[in-house]
Design a protein around this nucleic acid. Structure first.
Length: 924
RNA sequence: GCAAGGGUGGCAGAGCUUGGUCAAAUGCGCUAGCUUGAGGGGCUAGUGGCUUAGCGCCUACGAGGGUUCAAAUCCCUUCCCUUGCACCA
């Protein structure tokens, strides 16, 4: 099977089928998210590309000039990180390479240079894409660190900057203090993604100047603060930053410097000195005593904690444990089912012993959740407001009055860098942003999305949502491969920001590659993409003209494909940047987002070792089986399971198709079959092909596979059984091109076998046109009668458990009056009305005793009555036609009779005959 | 926590938008029989329960309740799961 695939790939290649030229034909331009070559690709990656390729091939067969290019994304740090890990001989990585990808340690040893790594894996990926038969135009391949591409990105960023979308500022990031770099999942031990969360630092003014600061998630409870907790054995420091002085635990001074760059330590003091200070509540002015508490962790937050005993079980318990007189709880939040001091109540209810009781944690969670959801403010400016809303209001108020600061923590702390250091939060200053929060820009993005098709349609909502919540996005980093920011050479443009409009670059990539890099200036890109005349007044050279022509022809992008995970970033950026850079006429037209691939029901992961590399899968199953299997497991959006047994099943079916094709090839030309069964087969095929067009269009590939492959295979099996003289060549003539987009190699091979060497390529032929005239629903219902009657006979024979063959079998078609009754019921749709109407018909009145019973049975399936109505004549015709078939099947004469002609001894069985259900009499 | 999507048979996965044709497509798995086929094998049948010369009946579509002649399908409540919440590919 593999040699066949390779042979056809060579033929496509030498015919240049996938290297389209600008022409007068209508074009279809589609791209898939380019791969990131830091490891080989597996069948999961293949899903997106196979989906894209099927679409490309389908559109090609529908007469479009199709462009499907591919490149490689090498921007950012993961490649560097990978090369570094290989250089360090990280046993995990080497193990994965060896065991899963079959990369020897010797080969791995050559991949310690990032560029060598990129070249190795990109070649590997490219070969895989060729071996699976993707219809890619490889002439346009590029890497995102190619000088030509760098120039393109610089051009894009100068444009964004000119439009005012680039901003500078500061923002918090997860940071390794030892590596001095921001970190993300691939930099951490265990690939943990460090997540940030915002907390509020509330400032409590000291009479002597400066502030105590306490970190809290619940700024709204500030009204209820009764005291301040500090650890009696900890050291505290006076520090200054942002123009004010603060007291925090000495252990946290360094930590705080990460987020307050100008922080300076002004000297240490012990708890005694600290506790002597007079501190007050910033909102109420109430004095707050400083109380020692060992539960306060000096290495967490500020080492100073505000105490809200009415609403925080820990604070209540600590106060109770300390047995302090003179501190009265203050109610802040009204909570249904609780009194003024919910923390006390829940602690008492649950019988929490003291602050060290594990139940204290439980009580805290419970009361925090309840208060956050159902609580209402009982005090202060926002009295009567729901806590969930007041929370932010209080915070804003505090901030604007200078009584609060924003602070960030690692929510899933502790997270460790691969170097061993604990990840902190750092406020990076001088950070460049793309401002996706710009309201005008958002409006344009929404306009674009609104006019765009999104498959599956459900994902449009997600995209819409993403467009809305996107704000300033950091677009540069200090390290990594990629393009330098044109207006800040110390910064590399971050990987999600340099891959937003590269689809435009494909259109000219093969031209730009051959040009001297210095010619790829803004004038060149402005001309190629906008047609802007050269400022010098000179005439554009031939390369510029060619580039302009390519872009004008291929753009806009007709379909953009990626995994569904990119909806929340890349695909949204893709829309934003297109509307920022290009005029409306060149905005993208469609997005297709597919789910992932699981492996025998489990998520593929390095740790589980259940990754199936694509090239290995191709060797094992063959290109077309892999293509089919990765897209047929589920509908577009859902995760698709690649099951080994299912893939084997596909191979088996293909062999069956192949065997039948062999029969078709031996048929005399022009030989036909006029039987009901043949007409039935063709009716089914035509209706499936008719359906397949919309299934291809909506990329409902699972259903498509069901229709064109499994169901069609079942049709064929039935036909082969049913027909005495099967004819298959007409069938295959239609079927082969219909499945060609999914299984192109087999389609080509079958086509040559059936039609000879001169048949031409299926890949460039026209998609088959279904003949509506061949679709006959009555015929299909008739065949259903034949199937049903066969099933019934089998059932009876089984129950009879006869030793030999029956002597004969007689089928009885129901009397005419039963059909009349059925249509009356279908019309009346109501039992009593139907019986009344039936009794009015003399012919039916004769059978008055049976009528109510029959009506009742029809009523149960009233919904089916309309569609399953086949006249008596048709039913008789179908069964009569099938008698010869039945005789052969059951090894005895099978005849059809009419109910009303039944002899008295037959009558008992014959009266069971109903429309759509022949009565059966087996003679032993 | 917030937001979105989902919970169907041993598994995967249709159907639910337009309530009745649904004990529920199709694939896989499993069971039995056949085929002298033996290292991804083929064919046939079966695969909720009870029954029966094909009928039929009961129980089922996360749980509970409701609307309706009729609900996997509509409404409400509740439990559970998945994904996203960014600066990272």
């Amino acid at each position: 099977m593999d040699e066949i695939a390779i042979a056809w790939q060579k033929k496509w290649d030498s015919a240049g089928v996938f290297e389209p030229a600008v022409s007068s034909k209508p074009k279809f331009y589609l791209t898939a998210a380019f791969p990131y070559p830091n490891s080989p690709q597996h069948i999961g990656h293949a899903r997106t590309y196979t989906t894209t390729d099927i679409y490309a091939r389908y559109k090609r067969m529908k007469g479009y000039n199709v462009l499907f290019p591919m490149g490689f994304h090498v921007t950012g740090t993961p490649i560097l990180a990978m090369a570094k890990r290989i250089a360090q001989k990280d046993p995990d990585i080497l193990g994965v390479f060896q065991d899963i990808y079959g990369i020897s340690n010797e080969t791995a040893a050559t991949l310690t240079d990032p560029i060598a790594l990129v070249m190795h894996f990109s070649n590997e990926i490219e070969m895989g894409m060729k071996e699976i038969g993707f219809s890619i135009d490889w002439r346009r391949k590029f890497y995102s660190n190619d000088p030509a591409f760098n120039r393109f990105i610089e051009w894009q960023f100068r444009l964004l900057e000119k439009k005012g979308y680039i901003k500078k500022g500061s923002h918090p990031v997860p940071w390794c203090p030892s590596d001095n770099n921001s970190v993300s999942a691939h930099d951490t031990k265990g690939d943990v993604d460090p997540t940030l969360e915002e907390v509020t630092l509330v400032k409590f003014p000291c009479a002597a100047g400066g502030f105590f600061i306490a970190s809290t998630y619940r700024p709204e409870t500030i009204y209820g603060v009764t005291n301040i907790w500090a650890n009696p054995s900890a050291k505290y420091s006076k520090v200054s930053f942002g123009g004010a002085e603060y007291y925090i635990s000495s252990a946290q001074v360094e930590y705080f410097k990460n987020q307050f760059a100008d922080l300076r330590a002004l000297g240490e003091l012990d708890f005694k000195a600290l506790s002597g200070m007079k501190v007050s509540n910033p909102l109420t002015g109430a004095p707050l005593p400083i109380v020692p508490a060992t539960f306060v962790d000096p290495a967490h937050g500020t080492g100073i904690v505000m105490s809200v005993p009415a609403h925080a079980p820990y604070d209540y318990l600590a106060l109770r444990d300390a047995n302090l007189p003179g501190i009265n709880m203050i109610n802040v939040i009204a909570l249904a089912g609780f009194g003024a001091f919910p923390a006390k109540e829940i602690a008492d209810q649950m019988g929490v012993k003291d602050q060290n009781d594990p139940k204290a944690e439980e009580a805290t969670k419970e009361i925090y959740r309840k208060e956050a959801h159902e609580g209402v403010m009982a005090i202060g400016k926002f009295k009567g407001m729901k806590v969930s809303i007041a929370k932010d209001k209080v915070k804003e108020d505090l901030m604007s009055q200078g009584f609060a600061l924003k602070f960030h923590e690692i929510a899933n702390s502790p997270v460790f860098c691969r170097c061993g250091a604990r990840i902190v939060v750092k406020n990076v200053i001088g950070q460049w942003f793309i401002d996706y929060g710009d309201p005008e820009w958002k409006k344009l993005a929404h306009e674009c999305l609104g006019a765009m098709a999104v498959l599956p349609e459900k994902s449009k909502g997600d995209l819409n949502y993403t467009l809305d919540w996107l704000q300033k996005k950091a677009c540069s980093r200090a390290q990594g491969l990629g393009t330098k920011l044109p207006f800040d050479q110390s910064q590399i443009i971050e990987s999600l920001s340099d891959s937003t409009i590269y689809m435009a670059f494909y259109t000219i990539a093969h031209i730009a590659r051959k040009m001297p890099v210095e010619m790829l200036n803004d004038d060149f890109f402005n001309y190629a993409f906008f047609g802007t005349p050269l400022p010098s007044g000179q005439k554009p050279n031939s390369e510029m003209e060619a580039a302009r022509k390519e872009f004008s022809y291929w753009y806009p992008l007709d379909s953009r494909h990626s995994g569904a995970d990119l909806i929340y970033n890349h695909l949204a950026f893709f829309i934003f940047n297109h509307v920022a850079i290009f005029p409306r006429g060149n905005w993208p037209r469609q997005i297709v987002a597919n789910g992932f691939v699981t492996m025998d029901g489990k998520k593929m992961s390095k740790s589980m070792g259940n990754i199936l590399p694509l090239r290995k899968a191709i060797v094992q199953y063959g290109a077309d089986v892999v293509r089919f299997s990765v897209v047929n497991g589920a509908e577009l959006k859902e995760d698709s399971d690649f099951s080994q047994t299912a893939a084997n099943g596909v191979s088996t079916r293909l062999r069956q198709f192949s065997a039948l094709l062999g029969m078709a090839c031996k048929e005399k030309p022009g030989a036909t079959d006029n039987s009901l069964a043949y007409r039935w087969l063709m009716s089914r095929l035509h209706s499936r092909i008719a359906q397949s067009e919309s299934l291809y269009e909506s990329l409902s590939l699972r259903e498509l596979g069901q229709e064109l492959f499994f169901n069609t295979s079942n049709d064929l099996a039935w036909y082969m059984k049913r027909s005495q003289n099967p004819r298959l060549s007409e069938f295959f003539k239609l079927w082969i091109p219909a499945v060609a987009p999914i299984m192109p190699h087999i389609a080509e091979e079958f086509n040559v076998l059936l039609n000879g060497e001169k048949a031409g390529l299926v890949s460039t032929s026209a998609f088959p046109q279904a003949d509506k005239g061949m679709i006959d629903t009555a015929l299909e219902l008739m065949e259903e009668q034949v199937v049903n009657a066969k099933f019934d006979i089998e059932h009876i024979l089984e129950i009879l458990k006869m030793p030999g063959k029956p002597k004969s079998i007689t089928l009885f078609a129901a009397s005419e009056w039963k059909y009349s009754l059925k249509s009356i019921v279908a019309k009346e749709r109501n039992p009593s009305a139907a019986i009344k109407a039936a009794m009015a018909v003399p012919e039916l009145k004769k059978h008055g005793a049976e009528v109510p019973k029959i009506v009742a049975s029809y009523m149960k399936n009233i919904g089916s009555l309309d569609s399953s109505m086949l006249g008596r004549g048709k039913e008789i015709e179908a069964l009569k036609d099938a008698c010869a078939f039945y005789s052969a099947e059951f090894g005895c004469p099978v005849t059809l009779a009419l109910e009303e002609e039944a002899s008295p001894e037959q009558a008992a069985k014959a009266k069971n005959a109903m429309p759509g259900k022949a009565a059966i009499l087996v003679a032993v």
